[in-house]
Design a binder for these strands. Structure first.
Lengths: 215, 215
DNA sequence: TTGTGTGAACAACTTCACAGCT
DNA sequence: AGCTGTGAAGTTGTTCACACAA
């Protein structure tokens, strides 16, 4: 049976499995074992099997997993089969890179709007879309059925923009601004922070350098 | 005493505390309680106290934590006081945005080189630095003491570039390429994957939409 | 009296090891 | 004979609740 409530840690890995499976599908691989898929995705095979078991019973003992069906199954669980409208707010360096990135459309997200405050940016075309005035945020979100927002504003504006997005009906926010943003419980927030990642790396780099001296 | 081996989960949160503390410092706040700092960083106060206890004893019972000393303490633990040379490899949309971002220099990382294969990009200036040929990777890494690399190449080139970086002496890699990259155990790798983040968001958005219908 | 530091209970996640299906 | 699916054990992380220092 399809299981209720998939663990967070599993959800976070499903996209990795999906990517590996799509690569296999492109090579016309029909069936894959947990061992092989685990190597491709960079995880432990037992973990992979337990993760997939949360989606229901896809595998066949003694054989492995059917690639195409797993791709479909994971896509459905992640909600990638539905239309998902996405807005990017803030078109500074990072926002423009994200708008031009193309990986969003490729994975089934419809980039529905680019919004910024800066009059110098409004009207400019980025990645095939015209930047619109953030003053129209509420209208754009409602009219184009935007449910996911990418926040790429400066830190100072992040909370205020997030509040407006949530007020307009957005239920998922990907925050690139280096600031702590709060949202109501029914909204999902994820943070991507470049300097945080670098600082974490710095710690381990630093520690391993010390270890080397000690050895 | 300064404690050995800080838990991974704690290390991942130290940069958040550091950011909140620096904001407090700029407002001339001298002392902060775990409760207030926890709100600013968006975590539970007990977790914050346990995290900070791994750095040693900074707080004073009945008073709180001295902001300046904590900033110094966390910076030292994270290795931000040392010189850290950083190279960005791959100057497509994302790589250029990262190069222009400025947040790296601000947080004490020295952007030492920008590298790309594309002859059309080599020689161009991005964010105040000239893009160099990736053929010179090994030489650049050694001469400029690069220990951290930001991988922003296409997926297909990521593993090969990572191998060269590691071979040249890089010990920390931040991978933005949508591919699984393997590195030896002594090298730390972190992954930032935009479409993975969106797919995770999509899951929760999707699930909450179902819940609403059920209610 | 206030707010840290921490043992202890709890919860989540990972890994092992093997039963059982094909 | 091979590989999944999963109880059970092990590990890591979180939260509680309170002793104790200032």
């Amino acid at each position: 049976m399809t299981e209720r409530s998939i663990p967070d840690a599993t959800v976070a890995r499903l996209p990795l499995y999906l990517r590996a499976l799509i690569a296999l599908q492109e090579q016309d691989v029909v069936t894959v074992s947990s061992g092989d898929l685990a190597i491709a995705a960079g995880v432990n095979p037992a973990k992979l099997r337990k993760d997939l078991s949360h989606l229901g019973s896809y595998g066949t003992r003694g054989v492995g997993y059917p690639v195409r069906e797993l791709v479909d199954g994971i896509s459905t669980v992640l909600g990638l089969t539905a239309d998902r409208g996405l807005a990017i707010v803030g078109l500074g360096n990072l926002g423009r890179a994200l708008a031009a990135y193309g990986g969003f459309q490729e994975r089934g997200f419809r980039v529905a709007a680019l919004l910024d405050v800066d009059p110098a940016l409004v009207g400019r075309e980025v990645g095939g879309l015209v930047v619109e005035d953030v003053a129209d945020l509420e209208q754009v979100v409602r009219e184009r059925d935007v449910t996911i927002a990418v926040l790429a504003t400066p830190a100072g504006a992040a909370q205020q923009v997030a509040d407006r997005l949530v007020g307009a009906g957005v239920t998922a926010v990907l925050n690139f601004a280096p600031a702590h943003v709060q949202v109501p419980a029914h909204v999902t927030l994820r943070r991507v922070d470049l300097s945080v990642e670098l600082q974490i790396l710095s710690f381990y780099e630093h520690v391993s350098a010390r270890d080397e001296r000690a050895v």
